[in-house]
Amino acid sequence: MAVNIITKEDLQEFKMELLEEIKNLFHIKTTEQKLWLRSSEVKSLLKISSGTLQNLRISGTLRYSKVGGTLYYNYQDIEKMLNQK
């Protein structure tokens, strides 16, 4: 049976590699699509005007939530709407 000796340097190197992998995991999470989008983000994403977005709200085509005067749209609802068309 072989014996491996672990030094402080080995542990330090392992620590740095582990921290780098954790940072990468957080980076991946932040680049994922946000769940809730504001009106300006939806208009930019869909390349539509404010009036068109209002028509989608009024017709019930696109659901929204209002929080403190700001309208939010669920990204999954936007995907569903696009897949139906």
Rank of each mutant, 00 (worst) to 15 (best):
residue 65 S to V: 13
residue 47 K to L: 09
residue 67 V to H: 10
residue 41 E to F: 04
residue 66 K to F: 04
residue 56 L to V: 07
residue 45 L to G: 05
residue 23 K to G: 03
residue 73 Y to V: 08
residue 47 K to N: 15
residue 66 K to E: 14
residue 44 S to E: 11
residue 72 Y to R: 07
residue 43 K to R: 14
residue 39 S to Y: 00
residue 40 S to Q: 14
residue 64 Y to G: 01
residue 34 K to W: 03
residue 67 V to A: 07
residue 54 Q to H: 12
residue 55 N to D: 10
residue 60 G to H: 06
residue 68 G to S: 11
residue 29 K to S: 11
residue 39 S to F: 04
residue 74 N to V: 08
residue 53 L to D: 03
residue 46 L to G: 00
residue 22 I to R: 13
residue 74 N to Y: 10
residue 25 L to Q: 13
residue 59 S to Q: 11
residue 70 T to C: 08
residue 48 I to Y: 00
residue 26 F to I: 10
residue 47 K to S: 12
residue 69 G to A: 07
residue 68 G to P: 04
residue 46 L to Q: 00
residue 54 Q to N: 13
residue 26 F to H: 15
residue 59 S to D: 06
residue 22 I to T: 06
residue 56 L to D: 06
residue 74 N to T: 07
residue 25 L to E: 12
residue 22 I to E: 10
residue 33 Q to V: 11
residue 56 L to P: 08
residue 64 Y to W: 07
residue 21 E to A: 14
residue 28 I to M: 12
residue 25 L to A: 13
residue 31 T to N: 12
residue 45 L to I: 02
residue 53 L to F: 04
residue 23 K to W: 07
residue 62 L to T: 00
residue 45 L to A: 06
residue 44 S to F: 03
residue 27 H to I: 14
residue 51 G to M: 05
residue 67 V to I: 14
residue 72 Y to V: 02
residue 42 V to S: 02
residue 21 E to R: 15
residue 41 E to A: 08
residue 61 T to W: 03
residue 60 G to N: 04
residue 39 S to W: 05
residue 68 G to Y: 07
residue 56 L to R: 09
residue 56 L to E: 09
residue 27 H to S: 14
residue 73 Y to D: 01
residue 28 I to T: 15
residue 32 E to N: 10
residue 69 G to Q: 08
residue 38 R to D: 10
residue 72 Y to E: 06
residue 45 L to K: 10
residue 22 I to N: 08
residue 59 S to P: 03
residue 40 S to G: 03
residue 48 I to Q: 01
residue 39 S to N: 08
residue 27 H to V: 12
residue 58 I to N: 04
residue 44 S to N: 09
residue 74 N to R: 10
residue 38 R to T: 15
residue 23 K to C: 03
residue 22 I to L: 15
residue 35 L to A: 11
residue 25 L to C: 11
residue 52 T to W: 01
residue 30 T to S: 12
residue 33 Q to T: 10
residue 27 H to G: 08
residue 70 T to L: 08
residue 64 Y to S: 07
residue 23 K to L: 08
residue 55 N to I: 02
residue 50 S to V: 02
residue 30 T to D: 15
residue 73 Y to T: 06
residue 28 I to Q: 14
residue 37 L to M: 13
residue 51 G to Q: 01
residue 34 K to S: 09
residue 39 S to L: 05
residue 24 N to G: 05
residue 52 T to S: 07
residue 32 E to P: 01
residue 67 V to R: 10
residue 53 L to P: 00
residue 43 K to N: 08
residue 62 L to C: 05
residue 47 K to E: 12
residue 62 L to M: 01
residue 64 Y to A: 02
residue 29 K to T: 12
residue 48 I to E: 02
residue 42 V to G: 01
residue 41 E to V: 02
residue 53 L to A: 02
residue 58 I to R: 06
residue 36 W to K: 09
residue 51 G to K: 07
